[in-house]
Simulated assay, not measured.
Amino acid sequence: MTFDLLAGLRVVDLSQWLPGPFAGQILGDLGAEVVKVEPPAGDPMRQLGPRDPDGLSAWYKQINAGKTILRLDLKADAGREVFAELLRGADVLLESYRPGTLEKLGFDGKRRVELNRRLIHCALSGYGQTGPLRLTGGHDINYMALGGGLASSGRVGESVAAYPPTADHASALQAVIAILAAVVRQGRTGQGANLDISLMEAVLAWQALPFTSALRGGSQAQVRGQGLLNGGAAFYRLYRTADDRFVSLGAIEPKFWAAFCRAVGREDWISRQAEPLPQDALTAEVAALLAGRLQDHWNDLLSDVDCCFMPVLEPEEVLLHPQIQARGLARAGEGPSVQIAFGGLIDGRAQSPRAAVREADAAEVLATWGEG
């Protein structure tokens, strides 16, 4: 049994790769019925990442679990007719085409309204439906670059790209938020919506704090490796241990920093927390201390100290951690693989395992679509 918060909501998902399919999966996790429409050759994501014996990508199976897959040729009359029927019964259309593609297929705004006045159309694109870059191709690293997500990340003189892809996942969440807000209005007024969500702007939306700091300059400027939250503070950064592993220290509040200093036998550091950024000298001292022992040593010493400390774990270790196991969101799948449930508990329980991704034909889908 999945969650039932969106029970009865019907979503047609035209998206491919990661951002749109992840958004569609979240809606499905919450109870929506999601039919993913793919071209005859299938979503290109089928070929990306590790393959299972059946030839399908394990990544594709993960991100599309819980959905019904319907292959349609939207360049052919028969495929467009089936798609029109789907839109007549849908509440939400999610797509990730380049701007103008849906119009070329014969489903512009006017046509969509004719088919279904209540339809919520969410267009998820790289740079948005307007502007000089609207037709420009890109991937996560490009959207992060323009949206400001790489401006202050990394070390001095070196930028670092995040993994898993930040813009892909952030834009999926942005799309879901907008869709759910539109669903509330749809239920209240019967009105549809046109949602223009871009991957780049999902990143840009997170930049108010670092941009404001950068414009003010001085010690709080978000220069790579020199700001409060990106490596310039000795009390908030990653450190290497003697076994070439890492630990995280996030002791921003003075009480946490003091607890850390006492636990490691360096009470003389307590008064130095307010030193100007970047705290290169203090950071070097802390780094030298932590580099002298194995990660396990520091974890044993600090795990029960209230100082915002956590070892940087490998995937296998994360899955075995008592907190992860207690919450029950990560589960073993086929392949091997790991299925991560919806990120939270609802009514005191975690989401049940998703059904495997399933293909169906048009007759089967439309028969089900017509019920209720």
Rank of each mutant, 00 (worst) to 15 (best):
R117I: 13
G100V: 01
V176I: 07
A161W: 11
V113K: 15
S171T: 03
D108R: 01
L94N: 01
L105P: 05
A161M: 11
C122P: 03
S125A: 04
A123I: 03
L115C: 11
G137H: 05
G154Q: 05
R117F: 13
G106P: 06
K104D: 12
T166R: 09
V113R: 15
G157K: 04
R111L: 11
R155H: 12
N142T: 11
S153I: 15
P165W: 04
L115F: 13
T130L: 01
Y97W: 12
C122Y: 05
S125L: 00
Y163R: 12
R117S: 15
G138Q: 05
A161E: 12
Q129P: 01
D140C: 07
G131Y: 03
T101G: 10
M144K: 03
G154R: 03
K104C: 10
A151D: 08
P132N: 06
R118E: 12
Y143T: 02
M144C: 14
V176P: 03
V113Y: 14
K110G: 14
H139D: 09
F107Y: 09
H121F: 13
A167Y: 04
A167I: 06
L173P: 00
Y127G: 01
D140G: 07
A151P: 00
R112S: 13
A170D: 05
T130H: 01
R117K: 15
D91R: 05
D140R: 01
N142P: 00
A172Y: 08
T101F: 11
Y127A: 01
S159M: 13
R155C: 11
L135A: 14
R134G: 00
A172T: 07
G138T: 05
R112Q: 15
I120F: 06
C122L: 12
R134F: 00
